[in-house]
Design a protein around this nucleic acid. Structure first.
Lengths: 209, 209
DNA sequence: GTTTTTATTAATCATGCGTTTAATTATTCT
DNA sequence: AGAATAATTAAACGCATGATTAATAAAAAC
């Protein structure tokens, strides 16, 4: 691999990039996704992103502007994919919510191309207010709104949040903390375990004692 | 050794000021707890901690050594309090685990003096491997070990982790993300909602509620 | 009153950060 | 061929970081 600092100045000749390898812009995006996913927004550095893309920091700014805009560009695609998945899900009756939501949730988190950006958003949300707001908005818009509309109980929002936080907590343990055996358990097993719990949050009795 | 008093020569360490106000060492610890809780390990700065304690950064290093040691000192107390709470809990039969654990959990998280350091650990664990290891260790040592011993099922660890992640997820939504209405709901209400779910994870059937 | 020990600060070092500006080279349009 | 434009880097700016060193002040013990 050629180091960015060793490369000749100026625009590269077409011969240098005529192979199938992706252009600098794509490489930057890919590196940004990886870096944000590994370290979260604040700890990821434009310089490290540039290094990972074999490029100069100035080029990152040339293509994307500020660090915040790099983050937005890196995360946007995955958030939209997840949002579309939730929006396009065939509507189920209240009895089907549990499994339906659990499956959708693991669908996007087990997908390697969406997991990275979602991890980036997750890690960032723990320390960065802007990222936290995006995360909160994603949950509110794509999860709570659909459920609250279909559920009649007055505590529908709380129910949906408790269900969502069960799933989010599992994501934390599985992908961020690397808790065993949780991290190595087959996703299908987790879905079968969690779907009834999520369903209970949605429609079960509020207390059992 | 000829000293009758047994006191060491020289200026005493950790001198408290004459009035009731806390000495520099205590102020540093307090500021560190606040700063780590607000920003997480990596984003909190020794300089900001010093500023909050009305002290020079060099003094922070003088008392605690490296930043990592400051973090350990700031978090240790709360982790020990939480650990003691879990260790001292009167043992309940398997049927009482759900409510018992949920109560213990919210007990330490609703306590203002332990919440700060726990938040610090939580935020830090999202981006820092060392903090993640501490967090993982705390869950494994004080939660899983007790449950796994008392439960006979071969999947006891997985069950305990799913239960723990339900509670941790709620903590995320309530204290970190500030999800409404979750953040404003009375803790007792949450306990009553969550205890049966936790109980189910521990002893319920694997695929139905 | 000298010695010993602690408390505290000022100054500094090396490093990394986000960002900007100017320069250089290659491609494309006329 | 010449002009315009796009891709890319080098160099720098100002600031924040974690940590160290050397110095000064104060208190206690002798």
């Amino acid at each position: 691999m050629s180091t960015a600092s060793g490369r000749r100045r100026g625009r590269p000749s077409r011969a240098e990039s005529e192979n199938g390898s992706p252009g600098a812009r794509e490489r930057i995006l890919e590196s940004a996704r990886a870096e944000f996913a590994r370290r979260g927004y604040d700890l990821a550095s434009v310089r490290a992103i540039a290094r990972g893309a074999d490029v100069t920091p100035a080029l990152v700014h040339h293509y994307f502007g500020t660090k915040e805009q790099v983050f937005a560009a890196a995360v946007r695609a995955a958030v939209e994919v997840a949002a579309r998945a939730f929006a396009a899900a065939e509507p189920t009756g209240p009895d089907g919510f549990g499994e339906s939501f659990t499956r959708l949730f693991f669908g996007v988190w087990e997908n390697p191309t969406t997991r990275g950006p979602l991890l980036a958003l997750f890690r960032s949300a723990a320390n960065n207010d802007t990222a936290a707001a995006i995360f909160r908005g994603a949950i509110t818009d794509h999860l709570l709104s659909r459920v609250a509309g279909a559920l009649s109980e007055p505590d529908a929002e709380l129910r949906a949040e408790l269900a969502a936080m069960q799933l989010v907590g599992v994501v934390l343990g599985r992908y961020v903390l690397g808790l065993e055996p949780l991290a190595s358990t087959d996703a299908e097993v987790l879905i079968r375990r969690l779907a009834p719990v999520v369903q209970h949050h949605f429609t079960g009795p509020a207390t059992a004692f």
